[in-house]
Each structure stands twice: as structure tokens, then as C-alpha cells.
């Protein structure tokens, strides 16, 4: 009997050892975070609190199991909100301003973004990671190039909705995507997401010119 228990324990340790190790490490990281940021003027400690998706993506190093990925997709899809009147194609000209802007939401006591400089809300900061307008040289490459996005895909309702959803919450389709959940996390409003959708899809957009 004792032998059986031992064998069983060994089997369980083999099967669940790595899971337990990951849990253990996550708990240590939580402790690290709790002791490394100090509340005070200009700080917002709530930003350090992870939601379930952030927790899972951290623990699995952005490599969730198929089952977890499905759960993330489902949960994140349910967060998507559309603008008043469900108009997902907004104003591409405003979208163009938004994709260029990288301003907003930086906090703390050392160099917080000043509210008076923040006309028109936060930027989408899209060029940090994506190529968009072919005339803009200074584009990052963490995300795929979106140059000619609409010219390649057309502007059907399906494409418009897919684009809006991707911008609003990238993890509704790709679990643990590197892309910030721009709408869900409140970086951009639904109307602003619609403006960027139009910038990507609209045939008039500079992004879709040759």
C-alpha cells in the first residue's frame, strides 16, 4: 500500500510538477511586484493588478494550451463594445491622426503625460509596431505591416467587423497576442476604434494608395 502511494505520488509529481512549478513562480512574481512599486501621488496601483488573461499569458509565456486559448478568445470576445449606432466605419482622417499619436496614459511622479498636451485623447501608437502609410519610414516591425490593408482585403462588412474587433480586443482572435487590447483596456474609445478601422479599410485612406 505504502509502495502504491509512493508510485502514485511520483506519477502525480511527474504529471503536475511543471504546473505546480509555474504556479509557484507566478506567486513569487506577484510578491516581487507587490514589493517593487510604491503608492503615492501620480501612481495608479490598480494597473499592476492582472486580469485572468494577463495572468494566463504571463504564466504560459504567451503559449497557452489550446483549451486555455479558446477560453481566452471567448472571454475577450465578450468584452467587445461597438459605438453608438453600430457604425464601425468612422472617420479615416481622424483615424490617421490617431494612428500617428503615441501620447497618453504614462503616469508616475517622474514624467507623467500632461493632460493639457493630450488634445483628442490617447494616441493609438500604431507606428511603434506596424507599417501603415507607405510614406512613413519610421515604422516598427513587432506587428505585421498593414500597408495596403484595405486594398488587399476590400471593405466588406465582414472585413470591417473583423478589423474593428481586432483593434478593440486582439485577443478575441489570437490568445496572448502581443497587441494591446486597445478598446477593452480603455486606451481608445469605440468611436476612435471605428476611426482607425476606417483608416485601415477605406479606399480613400493614404494607407491604401500605391
Amino acid at each position: 500500500m505504502k509502495n502504491h502511494t509512493l508510485i502514485l505520488s511520483a506519477l502525480l509529481a511527474g504529471a503536475f510538477g511543471s504546473v505546480h512549478a509555474a504556479e509557484d513562480l507566478s506567486a513569487k512574481v506577484d510578491k516581487l511586484v507587490a514589493s517593487s512599486f510604491k503608492p503615492g501621488e501620480g501612481q495608479d496601483m490598480s494597473r499592476l493588478v492582472q486580469d485572468d488573461t494577463q495572468k494566463l499569458c504571463s504564466k504560459t509565456r504567451n503559449n497557452p494550451s489550446a483549451k486555455d486559448a479558446d477560453a481566452i478568445n471567448k472571454r475577450e470576445r465578450a468584452t467587445i463594445k461597438y459605438p453608438d449606432g453600430n457604425k464601425l466605419m468612422g472617420d479615416w482622417k481622424n483615424g490617421e491622426k490617431l494612428v500617428k499619436g503615441g501620447f497618453g496614459m504614462r503616469i508616475g511622479a517622474i514624467e507623467p503625460d500632461k493632460a493639457d498636451k493630450q488634445k483628442g485623447g490617447n494616441g493609438g501608437n500604431c507606428y511603434a509596431c506596424h507599417a501603415l502609410d507607405p510614406k512613413e519610414v519610421a515604422a516598427g516591425n513587432i506587428g505585421p505591416s498593414l500597408t495596403g490593408y484595405g486594398a488587399l482585403r476590400g471593405a466588406s462588412d465582414d472585413i470591417v467587423t473583423y478589423t474593428y474587433d481586432k483593434l478593440y480586443n486582439a485577443q478575441a482572435t489570437v490568445a496572448c497576442s502581443s497587441m494591446p487590447r486597445m478598446g477593452h483596456n480603455g486606451i481608445l474609445t469605440p468611436a476612435q476604434v471605428a476611426d482607425i478601422t476606417a483608416y485601415l479599410v477605406s479606399p480613400e485612406s493614404p494607407l491604401n494608395q500605391k
Binding site: V29, L32, R47, N62, N185
Partner: peptide, 26 residues
Amino acid sequence: AYFWNRHGPMDFSCATCHAEDGKRVR
């Protein structure tokens, strides 16, 4: 482990930018 920790409104971890070759911000 903290390097892979995603938090904040951008959902970023250090690894978002620093775990692959040839990546750029702008």
C-alpha cells in the same frame, strides 16, 4: 519569470519587445 509578466493597460511584458531577433519600435 517577471520578464514575461504582462500587466498594465498596454498588456505588455518585457518579452513583448525583447524576445525576438530583428525587432524595432519605430
